[in-house]
Amino acid sequence: MIKVQNLAKTFGAKRAVDGVSFSVDRGEVLGFLGPNGAGKSTTMRMVTGFLPPSGGTASIGGFDIVEHPIQAKRLMGYLPENAPAYTDMTVYGFLNFAAEIRGLSGDAKKQAVTRVVEMCFLEPVLHQSVETLSKGYRHRTCFAQSIIHDPDVLVLDEPTDGLDPNQKHEIRQLIRRMGQKKAIIFSTHILEEVDAVCSRAIIIDRGRIVANGTPQELRQKSEWAGAVTLRVKGVASSAVTARLGQVPLVKRVTLVEEKDGRVTVRAFPRSDANSALAQAVGEAAREWQIEQLHSEEGRLDEVFRSITMPDTAKEAA
């Protein structure tokens, strides 16, 4: 549904987006990750036809966004960053306007408005002016606008930004549910969100795609992936690290915490260790009192940091 090829955007001398390519099919939710200023919003603005690209193409459902903008925009709903909405209108008026400009009228319009009001829980503020809404409601109002015509393609720029945890949860549920039938791109810098919602994720840094895969695949890139954490009681930390260091599958052992006679260590696997490491660590710790033993899945935030941090900052850390 969404096809992006070599998309580029320059602002003056700065290359904000530098040759980004990806595609999203129906039934996929693509997470767009990256530090602030990496080019996420700029990419989305080009995909939605707000900014003309300096190079490359983007097409929605086969319609090029530059050549056939109207047809392409018809298939798409868009929630811009910061969820702008006309402050002088009521929520009801704003949604009606959005429905009308999407070509809905009469009963179809009424039904569409009722449907999104229910989906986004806007009933309590329906006749309130947008200006007086709390941030959460304003966000949901703008979100409602983007799905009012039940589009095949959704582009959401930080849809959960500024919401409280309950609202975040609601919106994520909604995105995941809609993602079964639509092609969705959404950007975020909350990593847990990627796990909760995305079928695929792209990490973008300084205008380029630096990683692309399922959340599971991305986690595999973490050096934590497959590491085993062990907590034992009543043994000296030096003894634990020494013993585990001799296990053949273990690359290195780090001490995480030593407190109240309990020692927590983490053993990182050699590349060929796979799932056998937990077994091996368990064997080695057989005589100790094990309080906890589990394998790490790899952590997205660690992958994210190691990929997107400038080299100098990495050395300093």
């Binding site: 939605t48 109207i70 006309y86 959005a98 400009i101 999407r102």
Partner: peptide, 14 residues
């Protein structure tokens, strides 16, 4: 200023 221009110009209108 409010940013609604981004909504307006991504609607299916010229």
């Amino acid at each position: 200023r409010v940013g609604t221009i981004e909504l307006l110009l991504t609607m299916p209108i010229t």
